[in-house]
Design a protein around this nucleic acid. Structure first.
Length: 262
DNA sequence: TCTGGGGTCCTAGGACCC
DNA sequence: TCTGGGGTCCTAGGACCC
């Protein structure tokens, strides 16, 4: 996340969950101030530090806060209570519910489910049967505005990866090899700078027709060694038939463990 | 959005073990 | 000798998010 932005968020509350370059959750439940006043404070701070406006959502849980922040964009400040869900959330398109992407949206539409209210009106058992137990249950709870996830201040990374898309699709094995060697070096630098090692090493290959595949291999011991990771990467590559031109290559190291405290 | 570079989580099948 | 169930790990792919 942008350092300027992060500093402003932390100044408001140390209970901050980093959600990428320009998004964060703040737990302000222990602050004595009026929440709307806190919202205005956040917007003022961000504007002063970055010259950018932002949208703030204030709600009893992360899901509703996220949805509240989307209700008024850009430069919005929206308070949302649980009681507001039927009136303000249910009329929205299903796609607006976090967890509903293009694929799930299409699937829901095929059952005649078009709004978040439609999702909320379904029996839980049906959603679980159609979308899988985990996803179905998550969407059902979300459509009712329920979310128990805590604000997570420190999240340990599960994997590190680097990938690159070619300006023009390539078929040259030499260039593929060179690119992977470079990506391995970058991932290894990341592992070193973060003090982690990983046990699973893998590659990602996207072809010119956008089909994407992955190959990985798990070692007996975690490693951050460039040579060893490079060896595994080329072993993974040998399991891919390079019969089409390649658009993207990626290298990933997962199953991370800390090698030293930061 | 004819598609950038990170990530996370879930599912499913096979191997292996008890 | 044969059968079976359950648990865990690994691999691959898919959906989604910022």
């Amino acid at each position: 996340m942008s350092a300027l932005f992060k500093a402003q968020m932390l100044a408001v509350s140390p209970l901050m969950e980093d959600r990428g370059i320009d998004e964060a959750y703040l737990d302000i439940s222990e602050l004595a101030l009026d929440s709307e006043e806190i919202g205005r404070d956040i917007k003022r701070r961000v504007l002063e530090a970055t010259q950018l406006t932002c949208s703030v959502g204030i709600a009893p849980n992360k899901l509703l806060a996220k949805m509240a922040s989307e209700l008024q964009k850009p430069d919005g400040l929206t308070l949302l209570a649980e009681d507001d869900v039927p009136r303000r959330i249910w009329p929205l398109e299903a796609r607006k519910l976090p967890g509903v992407g293009p694929v799930t949206e299409k699937k829901l539409a095929s059952f005649g489910i078009r709004t978040i209210g439609d999702i909320a009106a379904q029996p839980l058992s049906r959603l679980m049967a159609e979308l899988g137990a985990s996803h179905g249950n998550a969407l059902y709870q979300a459509a009712h505005g329920r979310d128990e996830r805590p604000v997570v201040v420190e999240r340990e990374a599960k994997s590190r990866s680097r990938e690159t898309t070619f300006a023009a699709d390539i078929g040259d094995w030499q260039e593929i090899a060179r690119t992977l060697v470079g990506l391995v070096r970058e991932v290894v630098e990341d592992l070193h700078s973060e003090g982690v090692r990983g046990r699973t090493v893998g590659i990602k290959v996207r072809f010119s027709d956008f089909t994407t595949l992955t190959r990985d291999s798990t070692l007996a011991e975690p490693t951050d060694g460039e040579e060893q990771i490079r060896r595994v990467v080329f072993e993974c590559l040998s399991r891919v038939s390079l019969d089409r031109r390649v658009r993207l290559l990626g290298v990933r190291v997962g199953n991370l463990v800390k090698t030293r405290p930061l």
